[in-house]
Amino acid sequence: MKKILEMSKKVDSVEVVKSYLSDKTYYDALIIQSEILGSSREFLVERGFVEMLPVIISTITDPLNHDVLDAQIDYYGYKYYVTKSMILQKQVSVLVHDKIFSFSPNLRLEKEEKYDSGRHLIDFVQLDIEIKNKKREEIMDLMEDLIIYVIRNVLEKYSDIIEKYHPSLKIPSKPFKKISVKKAKELYGDEYEKLLSEQSDQPLWLIDFPILEREFYDKQDPKNSDILLDFDLIYPEGFGEGISGGEREHEYEQIVKRIKLKGNGLESYEDYLKIAKEGYLEQSAGCGIGIERFTRFILGLDHVEKTRLFGKAPGKFTI
């Protein structure tokens, strides 16, 4: 409790600036993060993706599958949510272009105890991608190529920085190992994600999550209704989850059924459901990769707040 109370105090802005000036980590992290952004954009554009501007506020946003505080704005009698992720907007966007991506700011007001994970910020950016008429395995294959491409570029251009922070970093080899959540739980128990990450030296995929462990938009496996056609990428060496995605539900009746199963109110998704009911949604798949978490993994940092200027970690109040 004492730690939480100390952490929850406002951090002096002058001390923050002093830290930026005295700790070379911030200088180096910005260089590496800039390369991640540039290489990712280059990789996707070369493969025919179109970049869209992020959605900052909307009448609908990701409900998420864990407890976060909602941030909302009342504007002329209408309610807008600050984006927790662009998942629902991505499904609509591929009706305009088949392959889209966006560097999307997300606001997730996590509980302060999440600070100790080393992986959580309340204000972060993820690279969102979505492709029409694609399957889960095709997205996973694409992301393996992207991760390899980015890490190769970083190692070629900034080997001196990597040697200083994360000398064991290596270019992963394809294909990444896959393991179902059911199998992982059998092998490692409830802390399967943490233990898988700590015991791995290569990124790996967690697949086939139980239906109640994820959101309503993740597609049910037609061959096994208890699981979803989704995935998480787990970074090795204890750095944990870095990508989440899968195939999407797009049929109106199925979406309604899934929303009710999750206990979410249909009224919260009125605009989205209208689009689905008219039959506009099409089969798609995609994912989001956290830029700060990717930076943290590449540099081997102890906390994700060190990956960006003006980072806001749960329970810490700063400029």
Results as ranks from 00 to 15, higher is better:
E282D: 13
K316C: 08
V256Q: 01
L273A: 08
A285W: 01
T307D: 07
E270T: 13
P314H: 09
R293P: 04
K316V: 13
I259P: 03
Y280D: 07
L266P: 06
K274R: 13
G263D: 12
K277D: 06
G286Y: 00
R293D: 06
I275P: 05
V304G: 00
L299C: 09
H303G: 08
K260C: 06
G279Y: 10
D271T: 13
Y269K: 01
L266R: 10
K262L: 10
I298P: 07
G315A: 08
L301R: 06
I289N: 01
T295Q: 10
L309R: 05
D302P: 12
I289D: 01
T318P: 00
T318S: 13
A313D: 03
G263A: 09
A276I: 05
D302S: 14
K312N: 04
G265K: 15
S268N: 15
A285T: 06
K306G: 00
I291D: 04
V256S: 07
L309K: 02
K262V: 04
Y269I: 03
L309V: 07
K260A: 07
K306R: 14
E267H: 13
R296D: 03
N264R: 14
L301D: 04
P314E: 10
G288F: 01
T295M: 08
R258A: 12
I255Y: 01
P314I: 01
N264G: 01
L281A: 08
E292Q: 15
F317A: 08
R293V: 07
K274A: 13
K316T: 11
G265C: 10
L261R: 14
G311R: 00
E270G: 00
G290V: 07
Y272N: 01
G315W: 01
V304M: 08
R258E: 14
F297K: 03
E278G: 11
I298R: 10
